[in-house]
Amino acid sequence: MTTSPSTERAQQQGQQFDRRAMLVASGVAAAGIIGLPLLHRALQMTAPVFVARHQRYDGPIEQTIRDGLLSTGFDPATIRGKTVLLKPNLVEPTRACPQMTTHPAVVVAAGEVFRRWGATVLVGEGPGHVRDTEMALIESGMQDALDSSDLEFDDLNYSQVGWQSNGGRKSSLKGFYFPRQVIEADLIVSMPKMKTHHWVGYTGSLKNLYGVIPGCKYGWPKNVLHHAGIPETVFDINASLPKTVAIVDGILAMEGDGPIMGSAKPMGLLVVGTNCTAVDATLGRIMGFEPAKVGYLQLAANRLGPVEERCIEQHGERWQSVASPFKIIDFPHLQELRAPGVLVT
């Protein structure tokens, strides 16, 4: 069994926070002038998130992605000569529902960004609801885009797998079988669609990484994960993966009965960040949710990244300026995730 890079990173971050906490605590003891709220705040993680508006699939989104990554502290030197795995969402594609899956133009643009920074780029996905991945690529338009941009695609549902211990331990699963490409990647780029989700509220870069779990070992849908708890396994998978960043396709989003049956909601957004938790918390605020009420974000908060608004540095557009509450289906478990005061007609 191996210790996941994320876990190591979290441990390192934890050590940094511990040192900071010690200094603060020393100050408290010495001067007696700093209260507990400030100590609590000092222990919290912070991360930047970049939001770009007025984006179009036929626009300069490669530049937007590059700006977003650089703005949120991504260092291109870290992936020169390394392997980057782009993970779009192709859960159950159909041409009639482009709001369900990550648009190929965003994937191709991201691929170009990382290639120009000297990385080897792969695209990989294990569609959650369909065994015929070729069909998923054709219906999503991804096949044509991959061909024209000479990007290699790997079907993660049928890849060779390796065992990785559970770096999160919020579910009962002792570990995960990850595809070889996931284990060997130096960077995984979660590229979700901005969508509502009828079980967990909404889905972003953390939930999107369910798609790195191979169907051949976990089924279609990946029912082992459901049995172990969706929020818990979303957290555990993310805590067990190598380094991840997020590029969210919010240009044409989905509201209502997501993640499959919802309606199109044009938003014109790309949301980028080097911390998936912070990105997803920001997505939630834009969509009219209270992120702190969302199960997997409750688990991720200050373990994988920050959820509280004051701990997320806004780059590009402020989330308030692009916020547009998403419709959700009328069931209590979803309505209770709404941010206070949000009304959707």
């Binding site: 065994r131 089924g219 279609w220 849908p221 029912n223 082992v224 049995h227």
Partner: peptide, 13 residues
């Protein structure tokens, strides 16, 4: 039949 023992019955298996 399930895909994986211990989980729900699904159509294809």
């Amino acid at each position: 039949w399930p895909w994986v023992d211990g989980t729900h019955s699904w159509l294809e298996p």
